[in-house]
Design a protein around this nucleic acid. Structure first.
Lengths: 256, 256
DNA sequence: TTGTCAGGCT
DNA sequence: AGCCTGACAA
């Protein structure tokens, strides 16, 4: 039996929007500490990890571990049936063949209930090692999105170089070439300011199509963290205040 | 060697937006007095002339005359990679096979560089005679845009009549007919006020498709000047404060 | 390629 | 506050 009530329903909507393009079906693993999801994207190139801590909900109740196989696309459809400032409650009972969604508006004079059929999903549960990275860049999520969007007009892929001076995004294409350099900590605004935690310079190349996809999570956080080591998958993390995170992993393109 | 730095980058973006629909490739002629462009539109019906004076830039440096063959479409793409309040620097070196674009944000913690490949373009350099016109109408650019937009729902072409009383725009089409008359000096606001400098009444008919295209320059100036003489191409001019102008020329339709 | 939706600008 | 442009999904 799971019961989880989320005051800020828009949060769940945004989270599902942030992953639905990449993952069509996935297991939501629920236990008393919260709800987690881990899944390879449809083309088995990227990996998505999501955590919603129990204390994000009020109340939160989960008697025993449950793995809810959810069609993300259908879940997203049902979530659109709730208004942004509705409270959302999700419930699953013991037999676990369906998920109940309840929307309540602020004044409490409207209640909507939806039932989502659950499915059996083979979980390719990859253990993700908690690595330490050579470079950890924290920057404005909007700026990261803008950079990915701009550079994708030039090329399919971007090379990210991290040095003490800053982080440089480069793309080369038919109509020309472009690079964008962000210096560390120049901005005064704390949230917007870029910080670079550098153990070692690194240079990696990634598919812009995937990065652009990751930036669907931009509405969830004002900043994003890019963690890199040479020849190791990039970690792109959006921390959601007091709630949890959405993380994306993407392997670098290998130099030929 | 050309180096030109424009504080208000949005200006260049707007200028290119104002001409890109008409002209896909054109030579930018640079000398020590500034940057100029003259080109027939793709269908060789209209003519576009652009001037950016050297003093619009700070600094401006152009050692020797250069003719930069630019794909306007690609230039526009790269310009979109800069934010509106970025400073833009354009540079071209001696061999002139590429143009460098640099964007810097206000705080200076982000620098973006883009390289645009140049091309060889045959310039059909038409000398434009500095005529004196029978009627010169200065009016609100927004109002002119609105008139063109409204009348193009009625017809393909508009007839403009200038008399002492004012300027009348007429269109006749299948669903009916319409005309809009602007009287001289009706508005109090100086910039918005319409003035008509009339030597002789005139009446000319133009393609609305082209006029509508010219009004892409509306964001560049609050007023527009229409200069007309019977059976002579119309001159539509947007003066850009302290910077230069965008001019469009369009031959009238001939009465059958 | 078209229609819908969100964000930015005037 | 309204209009317009750009982005995103079907």
């Amino acid at each position: 039996m799971l019961e989880a009530r989320l005051q800020q329903g828009s949060l769940l909507k945004k989270i599902i929007e942030a992953i639905k393009e990449l993952v069509t079906d996935a297991n939501f693993d629920c236990n008393d500490s919260g709800i987690a999801l881990q899944a390879m994207d449809n083309s088995h190139v990227a990996l998505v990890a999501l955590l919603l801590r129990a204390n994000a909900f009020e109340p939160y109740r989960c008697d025993r571990n449950l793995s809810l196989g959810i069609s993300i696309a259908n879940f997203a459809k049902l979530l659109k049936c709730g208004a942004n400032d509705d409270t959302i409650t999700i419930e699953a009972d013991e037999n676990g063949d369906s998920l109940n969604l309840t929307f309540e508006n602020e004044t409490g004079d409207r209640t909507s209930q939806f039932e989502l059929k659950l499915m059996d999903i083979d979980s390719d549960h990859l253990g993700i090692p908690e690595t330490s990275y050579d470079a950890v860049v924290k920057m404005s999520s909007a700026e990261f999105q803008r950079i990915c969007r701009d550079l994708s007009t030039l090329s399919e892929s971007v090379t990210i170089d991290c040095t003490k001076e800053g982080v440089k995004f480069q793309a080369v294409g038919d109509l020309g070439a472009g690079n964008i350099t962000i210096k560390q900590g120049a901005s005064i605004d704390q949230e917007e300011s870029t910080t670079i935690d550098l153990q070692q310079n690194c240079s990696l190349t990634f598919s812009l199509k995937y990065l652009l996809n990751f930036t669907k999570a931009t509405p969830l956080a004002s900043s994003v963290t890019l963690s890199m080591s040479n020849e190791v998958p990039l970690l792109v993390e959006y921390k959601i205040n007091e709630v949890g995170f959405v993380r994306y992993y993407l392997a670098p393109k290998i130099e030929e």
